[in-house]
């Protein structure tokens, strides 16, 4: 219940959060406009076609039992010719309409796919792994590279170039409010661009079936005004500070003593595992386990105690933690802002 409440508040905060019908950025908007155009035109055609198909029912013979059958029916040649002309006309119309649809479709495609239209774009590298996302903000200056997971922040109004790949099977990056989807394929890099024109939290989801937990492979895109974004970015640049508080110090120790350290990275500590998500700024995220649970202490505890019952089959091992170690560990993780 709590989880529901929290996530609904997220939704409200970001208005609509996972739909192609409420675009929040340029590419998604052009696509939505194209979609409306198609929808309107095709609906009109549909209605016309179906009307013509059903009209003959008005003048039908009543039914097989009421009416004796006659010999076969042969309309006059004049009728046949008239019909042939109409069919020809309808066919020509179909061809013209389709030609138009192809043209608008191809031109929208040009405008919405490929590289971002502006050179000042941000470059984000997304690497999908069963069943979570690694997010890396590329930068020529190595000290300005940010590593994150399952959540990305973007500045409003600035195009963001996504360079996506996968480490295992094929996944697909889809944030419907911002852009169509793009497959992430092992040993290939696919490019896409997204852009948000208004702040909000947009939920995305892996769209290509990728195994057991394909359903729980979501990702949040948080669009913020540029200054807020910069603030977030510089916070993410910081490695995790060594905790001052003894409980948290204990927690850090716990993390390093148990198997956690083998799979996770916390920058600024000796934890440098690559198997699971980077946890350096875990506490700043909205959700844990790729959108499966809202990020709060209770869920975190539940997740660490038994990840396999929350997201069956995921690749995080269940690490038996002594009860007295749990609280410090949680305190520590909660401090990773």
């Amino acid at each position: 219940m709590k989880r529901v409440l929290l996530l609904s508040s997220l939704a409200v905060a970001g208005r609509a959060q996972q739909t192609a019908m409420d675009p929040a950025g340029a590419p998604a908007r052009s696509i939505a406009h194209l979609g409306l155009f198609f929808l309107a035109l095709l609906t009109a055609i549909y209605i016309v076609v179906i009307t013509f198909a059903l009209l003959p029912l008005m003048r039908r013979h009543r039914g097989i039992d009421q009416e004796p059958l006659e010999g076969n029916h042969r309309p006059s040649d004049a009728t046949e010719t008239r019909m042939a002309k109409r069919i020809g006309l309808a066919t020509v119309a179909t061809i013209l309409i389709l030609f138009g649809l192809i043209t608008v479709s191809v031109s929208t495609s040009k405008a919405t796919s490929g590289s971002p239209p502006r050179p000042d774009s941000l470059v984000v590298e997304i690497t999908a792994t069963q069943w979570w996302w690694s997010v890396r903000y590329a930068n020529n200056d190595a000290s300005r590279i940010v590593m994150a997971a399952n959540e990305m922040h973007i500045p409003v109004g600035r195009p963001v170039m996504i360079r996506g790949t996968s480490t295992d099977v094929i996944h697909s990056f889809w944030v419907p409010n911002l852009q169509g989807k793009r497959d992430l394929i092992p040993s290939r890099t696919n490019i896409d661009w997204i852009q948000a024109d208004r702040p909000g939290r947009y939920r995305g989801q892996c769209a290509e079936f990728c195994g057991l937990q394909h359903a729980h492979m979501a990702l949040w895109v948080v669009a913020e005004p540029p200054d807020r974004f910069e603030e977030w970015y510089s916070r993410q640049l910081q490695p995790a500070a060594d905790p001052a508080d003894p409980v948290r110090q204990r927690g850090q120790q716990v993390f390093m003593d148990y198997a956690c350290v083998l799979c996770h990275t916390i920058q600024g500590t000796q934890a440098a595992g690559q198997v699971g998500p980077d946890l350096t700024h875990l506490a700043s995220r909205l959700t844990i386990a790729a959108g499966t649970l809202p990020n709060n202490k209770g869920n975190l505890a539940g997740w660490i105690t038994d990840p396999q019952s929350i997201k069956p089959g995921n690749h995080m091992a269940t690490v038996p933690i002594r009860p007295e170690d749990m609280q410090p560990l949680l305190e520590y993780l909660e401090s990773l802002q």
Partner: peptide, 20 residues
Amino acid sequence: SGVIIFCWIATLWTGRIHLT
């Protein structure tokens, strides 16, 4: 596909329908 549909519609228009 459209041509086929149109031809059927013409068939319905010019035939005698027994609504089985």
